[in-house]
Design a protein around this nucleic acid. Structure first.
Lengths: 111, 111
DNA sequence: TTCATACTTGGCTAAATTGCCAAATAGGAA
DNA sequence: TTCCTATTTGGCAATTTAGCCAAGTATGAA
């Protein structure tokens, strides 16, 4: 790996790291349906406001969401809905893993 | 978020966490071209063998790669090539971020 | 068997991440 | 102005992760 390669893979990893948390994946799912304020997302997630605000800032720094002030509230929007395809692929992996597990189990049963 | 939702998003996050590292993204890219042994990947990455072996074990536990013994070597294979689409989306985000940066820069220049 | 190669695992330290509380900031209402 | 609500930021402890070295395991060759 040369320096340019390292830069490329690190840039990719930074985006993916921003998605690598259950609360942030939940936020992405919610924002895909409609824009939401910090307060709304906080209530849905059931964590501290500051925690959710920090998750949103991680997604924003990665360029995955955008924010927009609306009076005293801040409305967050999903910037790249293609992220959802990506999650479709993740589901495929989970399904494949589940199938593997089932094969292992059925194998044991028939012994 | 109810308990089932939490389980779902955590399962997704676990897969994504496995990809959230530059060396592991590099490995996925390489395995997409052809199966590789630990030794080959180690040489390409330029880290300690044990480090690469641990990265591969993370990918394997997530169900992203498979391993197969071949004599004294172990051949790793990409299990879910759809992961690559996913990286295509990540590239879109990077490009979008770059464009935003360029707009900010050109905005400053014209002032 | 012994030796060498390929890989994995254990152990350790350093660094990054998470989530809470408390404090700061920003607007709007009174 | 003061007060209240919405959000962000700072700080901290607990947890997780990364990567190196050393030791262990496994397989094939001699």
């Amino acid at each position: 790996m040369n320096q340019d390669d390292i830069k490329l893979y690190e840039a990719r990893a930074n985006i993916i790291k921003a998605l690598a948390h259950s609360s942030r994946l939940f936020i992405v799912d919610m924002l895909n349906k409609q824009p939401r304020t910090v307060g709304e997302l906080t209530e849905m997630i059931g964590a501290d406001t500051s925690t959710v605000s920090k998750h949103l800032s991680v997604l924003k720094n990665a360029g995955i969401v955008e924010d927009e002030k609306k009076g005293t509230t801040v409305l967050y929007t999903l910037k790249c809905p293609c992220i959802l395809n990506f999650i479709g692929c993740v589901e495929d992996v989970i399904e494949s893993n589940t199938n593997t597990q089932m094969e292992i189990l059925s194998c044991c049963k028939t012994r």
